[in-house]
Design a protein around this nucleic acid. Structure first.
Lengths: 216, 216, 216, 216
DNA sequence: TATGAATGAGAGTTCATTCAT
DNA sequence: AATGAATGAACTCTCATTCAT
């Protein structure tokens, strides 16, 4: 419609408009790293390069900041993802493998990783936001998996399994990887020499082998 | 309407022996439910039926209380378990299945469930405890799994897999189940109608199918 | 009147009758050493070899314990002392010297030393007991000194000085010595090699020299 | 009778520069008056006209506040004094008299008076501070006195005395005066009619008379 | 808008005091 | 009389939140 006006050269790289975003980014880092309670708003503000007072200009309370962080980082990535899978041409096994690597690229290896841990930790303190996470992340994710499985079963590529429990075959390794990245020291055998790709490959591989139709 | 009967004076119980246990139980519940920071010592004391001051008679600080909870609920559960598996006669597949159900009976379905979540949540705030948990729980558990796998591979019952990553094939579902029980609302499709046994059966079943030697 | 019944052999050296005394003794030690607030009643009880509850059987509160300690340790030593001085035959200088050494023997070198410091420290928190100390110790002591000085002046042995201020010429060194013994590290040049007798000799000597009548 | 005028909203002052000083002043007053333990930080804050939290903006703990009070009121008062005495021209007797009156002007009659009592009272609870006070105040003060005495002895103005004990001839009256001002009720005969100048004059006078060389 | 000094409710901890045994 | 487990008020210290500038 209208022609795009020439963008003014970005001065200083920190415009006022960027403030909330910088705060959210800093908050995400700290919430994931230290948990909700142990994160002090002053620290968030400091990391975003503003004063404590300024933070409260954008977010009315620590609680709202937290909710905003969660919302910001899980917003509608699934629509796009679903589309990709819908138009995917290939076997269901390839779809599963693709889903694993896509998860890693879009979630596991990004800032969004650790959100799972955060939700697990804080779900009881923030039921509302937990519900939001469930609706926006968990259920759509599970639906994605369910659809792939259903297709695989119908096409005879996978054996006939209880869909509602099969979901967790995919979810469990991804969730564990989320937690591992947050507190590697707890779960990982050799924290300094852990390769997430190998981890995912192993899981996908064994999962798919197990899913093959069995001889009577 | 009816007059309130005179409250009998609060009995000052005298149960030095029983107190620590009651406090630890209350603390476990609350720590698992609300996290470390959100749990107030006064609340723990109240749930154990004593006053705030009494708690400090038995535990010198909130942190020591937390440590005691972890120790109480973890130590000594592993030795026994290792013995059982060491003297187990049967196929490796049966051992894996046994391990799953034994975990459920001794950990997953007990108060000790949720401790995994607790550790994941608080590991960064209590490196010392996290290290303790890693040494006393995670690593021994992994060694147990490793041993079974090694035996299965050597006997030809399992295909040849990378042991160091295979471990997680067992660990991931158990950890997820620990988390699920703590914040079921987040991960589970239908929280009111979830059967842990089916969950574990599905996982064990698919895992073992995937582990079978493959045709060249 | 009645014949004294044969004393039963003292068993165990700790009769019930001794309790209050032992508590007072322990309390004196601790109050002097650590001050009122920093002394815990449990510690007092422990040092007296009884339980905390027992202490409260004899003294209704920490405050009353404190008052009892002070009262106990300053009770009527002055009557006896006054008598001694009244019947003293010798010069006033000798009386002053005697007073110094008597103070050392009866107060300075005994448990009662440190009470001065205690009163100085706590006077504002215990006005009532401070008043008591003033009445029972400070004023009688000053009166003693005043009487000696007056006699010395009248007899021409001392020069004519303002009695009301002269008093402090005697009081100051004794008070300093009381404080020194309590917190030697603060005031004393060489704490490990300090001789109270030399200290007192020096003060008495110079004081008396200064008191001699002066040539016009 | 008359209506209460509406209270103006509490002014939130903004005087970062002035705060520490005001807090230190309030703290000095209260510590001297009531002792360390009996002084509540909230009270200090209130006397300085700020809230409890504000105090902790400037001093990280009660202990550090205490230390700061001692440092604030001691440091830097001695250097100047030493200079003055070094360049003093006059007899040693005049120097002693000058020292007495200088002490009164710079310490005894100021806020710094009472610090001696404070140190005596709390020395056992704060060995570190006591050491500091000893090093920074007591020992330099004693050295000052020692130097005057040595000079007086060498010039024949004073008789030959043991320097190490003579020091206390000067220190004792000053210390007593410090204590008197803090808890006058204890030591002083007639608290409402006490003249520190007369007190000091009396002491200086008698001290110097006593120091005069004696006939063989 | 942005600041940061100031606030005050709330948490962990101590310890004089109580009271069932 | 004696005990010591239990209490709870009081204290120090923290930190989310406010508000004058």
């Amino acid at each position: 419609m209208s022609s795009i006006p020439p963008q003014p050269p970005v001065k200083r790289g920190r415009r006022k408009q960027a403030r909330p975003g910088e705060l959210l980014e800093a908050a995400l880092d700290l919430f994931v790293e230290k948990g909700y309670a142990a994160t002090r708003v002053e620290e968030v503000a400091a990391r975003a390069g503003v004063s404590k007072g300024t933070l409260f200009l954008y977010f009315p309370s620590k609680e709202e900041l937290f909710k905003a962080v969660v919302r910001e980082n899980i917003s509608g990535r699934f629509g796009e993802w679903e589309q990709t899978l819908a138009s995917f041409t290939g076997t269901c096994s390839e779809m599963i493998e693709y889903a694993f690597s896509a998860w890693w690229e879009r979630i596991g290896s990004t800032k969004a990783n650790g959100l799972g841990k955060l939700m697990v930790s804080e779900a009881n303190n923030f039921p509302e936001i937990a519900q939001f996470y469930r609706t926006e992340v968990v259920l759509p994710g599970q639906e994605l998996i369910r659809r792939i499985f259903r297709r695989g079963i119908e096409s005879g590529e996978f054996r006939d399994i209880d869909l509602e429990y099969a979901i967790y075959l995919v979810q469990a390794p991804l969730m564990q990887l989320d937690l591992m990245n947050s507190s590697r020291v707890i779960c990982v055998v050799n924290p300094d020499n852990f390769d997430p790709h190998k981890y995912l490959k192993m899981h996908a591989d064994n999962l798919l082998a197990g899913l093959r139709p069995r001889a009577a």
